[in-house]
C-alpha cells in the first residue's frame, strides 16, 4: 500500500481545517471500506487520511414522526440495517443496506460514506433520493442542508466545497399511506455492485397515487429521477397498463453506458423491468 499521512481529527472544526490546510489528495476516513481499497489498488492518490471516528455526536440515530429519521456520519450500514424501525418502516432502505457489500463490510461502512463516494451505482442513494432525504453539511463558516437529489454533480463528484463535511442525513417520516421498494440487479447475491438499481417511494390516497418518486441507479452519471414516468403515474390507480407505460418512459429517461458489467441496452431494459416490479412491490404495503 502506498504511504500516506494519518491524522486524527478531534472535532468537526479540526477535520475541516485539516481538509483545507492539507490540500488536495486529503480524504476523510470513517468506515474506510472504499478508501483503503482504493489506496491499496492505486485507484486514488491519497497523501493524507483524516480519521473522523473520534468526533463526538456523529454516531446518533433519532426518529420522530414530524422530522423523520436522522443519522450521523459515523452510523454504519449494518447498524441501520438491523434497526427495527428501518426494517418496519423503510423496507426500501432496509433492502438497499442489506445488499451493500457483505456483512463484514456493512459493519464498517457508513451510509454517509457511501453517499459521499458519489458512485452512480451506490445502493443507498436511490431509495434515499426516492424518499426525499437531505444531507446536513458542516463548514467552519456555515451550516447548510441540501436535498440529496441535488447533492451529486457527476460520478464521484458532489456539491461539497473544500472543507465541507457531511455530518448526517435526514429521511422524511415514513407515512402510513406510503409504499417503498428498492430492487437491485446484479450477477450475484452479495459482494456485488449494482448493474441497475431502482427505488420507488409512493403514497396512496383513496386508491389513487398521490405522489411517487422513482430513482434509477447505475444508469447515468449520477443517480437519476424519472420525472416523466412519475408524472404519468401520479393521480392514477397504478393499474398494470399504466405501470407498463411509465416503466417504458423510465427507460427513455435513463442514460446508461456499456461496460464490462453490462451493455447500455441491457441496463435500459432492466430499468423497464425493475421499475415495474418496484412499483408493484411498493404497492404490496397496501395489499
Amino acid at each position: 500500500m502506498r504511504r500516506f499521512e494519518y491524522h486524527r481529527a478531534e472535532t468537526l472544526e479540526h477535520a475541516s481545517r485539516l481538509l483545507v490546510e492539507l490540500g488536495d489528495d486529503s480524504f476523510l476516513f470513517a468506515g474506510g471500506t472504499d478508501l483503503l481499497v482504493e489506496i491499496r489498488e492505486r485507484l486514488r492518490r491519497v497523501r493524507n487520511v483524516i480519521d473522523i471516528k473520534s468526533i463526538l455526536g456523529l454516531s446518533d440515530i433519532t426518529y420522530d414522526e414530524a422530522r423523520g429519521l436522522t443519522f450521523g456520519a459515523l452510523v454504519t450500514v449494518g447498524r441501520l440495517e438491523r434497526l427495527p424501525l428501518v426494517c418496519q418502516r423503510y423496507p426500501n432502505l432496509r433492502a438497499a443496506f442489506a445488499s451493500l457489500g457483505s456483512i463484514q463490510v456493512r459493519n464498517r461502512a457508513t451510509v454517509v460514506g457511501n453517499i459521499c463516494r458519489a458512485s452512480p451505482s451506490a445502493d443507498t442513494i436511490p431509495p434515499l433520493i426516492a424518499d426525499g432525504a437531505f444531507v446536513h453539511i458542516y463548514s467552519r463558516t456555515n451550516m447548510r442542508v441540501v436535498p440529496l437529489a441535488e447533492f451529486f454533480t457527476g460520478p464521484g463528484k458532489s456539491v461539497l466545497a473544500k472543507g465541507e463535511i457531511v455530518t448526517g442525513i435526514t429521511v422524511p417520516p415514513a407515512l402510513d399511506n406510503s409504499g417503498k421498494a428498492y430492487l437491485k440487479h446484479g450477477r450475484r447475491k452479495a459482494m456485488e455492485l449494482s448493474t441497475v438499481g431502482v427505488a420507488v417511494s409512493l403514497t396512496m390516497e383513496d386508491g389513487l397515487c398521490n405522489d411517487i418518486r422513482i430513482a434509477l441507479g447505475a444508469v447515468g452519471a449520477t443517480v437519476l429521477r424519472a420525472p416523466e414516468a412519475e408524472a404519468m403515474l401520479r393521480g392514477t390507480a397504478l393499474d398494470a397498463a399504466t405501470i407498463k407505460t411509465a416503466a417504458n418512459k423510465a427507460m427513455e429517461e435513463c442514460t446508461p453506458i456499456s461496460n464490462v458489467r453490462a451493455s447500455a441496452d441491457y441496463r435500459r431494459d432492466m430499468v423497464g423491468v425493475l421499475t415495474g416490479r418496484a412499483i408493484k412491490q411498493a404497492l404490496e404495503a397496501f395489499a
Binding site: 489498488e41 450477477r187 450475484r188 447475491k189 452479495a190 459482494m191 456485488e192 455492485l193 464490462v260 458489467r261
Partner: peptide, 15 residues
C-alpha cells in the same frame, strides 16, 4: 478489462 474480483464474478456462498 476485469482483472480483479470486483468485476470477475465468482459465485459466493450466498449464490
Amino acid at each position: 478489462l476485469n482483472a480483479g474480483l470486483v468485476d470477475y464474478k465468482m459465485p459466493l456462498s450466498m449464490d
